[in-house]
Simulated scan of single mutants.
Amino acid sequence: MCQHDPACPPYDHLDREAARLVASHPEQGWSLLCNGVVVFEDTGELLPDGGVIAPHRPTDIRTAA
């Protein structure tokens, strides 16, 4: 999918989120990267092969009182 040089990391590499942004829809909570990955605001991802990456943002951090 990537047409520029240097090419973005493929969707199946660990650094896939470093790909260039193609479309952004913050009002809907998602963005499309040039490697075909759809990234959601909760940090979940949908891969072009249909695979899913569960959200990986820490949500249970406690603050000191």
Rank of each mutant, 00 (worst) to 15 (best):
D5F: 05
P26M: 09
H4Q: 12
M1E: 04
P55S: 07
T63M: 07
Q28N: 07
S31V: 14
A65T: 13
A64G: 03
A64T: 14
A7N: 04
M1P: 00
L14P: 03
E41K: 11
G29M: 08
L32C: 05
V38W: 11
G50H: 02
G44W: 12
V22E: 06
A54E: 10
C2H: 03
V38T: 15
A23K: 12
D42F: 08
F40S: 10
E27T: 05
T59R: 14
S31W: 15
P9T: 01
T43F: 11
A64K: 10
E41M: 15
P9R: 03
P10S: 13
C34D: 00
A23F: 11
P48A: 09
V39H: 10
R16K: 13
P48S: 12
V52E: 07
P6Q: 09
D12C: 00
T59A: 03
T43M: 13
V38N: 03
L21E: 02
G36Q: 01
H25L: 11
E41F: 08
V38F: 11
G36K: 03
C8R: 04
H25W: 01
L46T: 02
R20A: 09
P55W: 07
I53W: 01
A18L: 06
V52C: 10
A19N: 13
C2P: 00
H13W: 15
E27H: 07
G44Y: 07
V38S: 13
G50F: 02
A7R: 11
L14W: 02
D60I: 14
V22H: 00
L33K: 13
A19G: 07
L47A: 09
A19S: 12
H13T: 14
E17T: 12
Y11F: 07
G36D: 00
E45A: 15
D42N: 15
R16H: 06
C8A: 06
G36V: 07
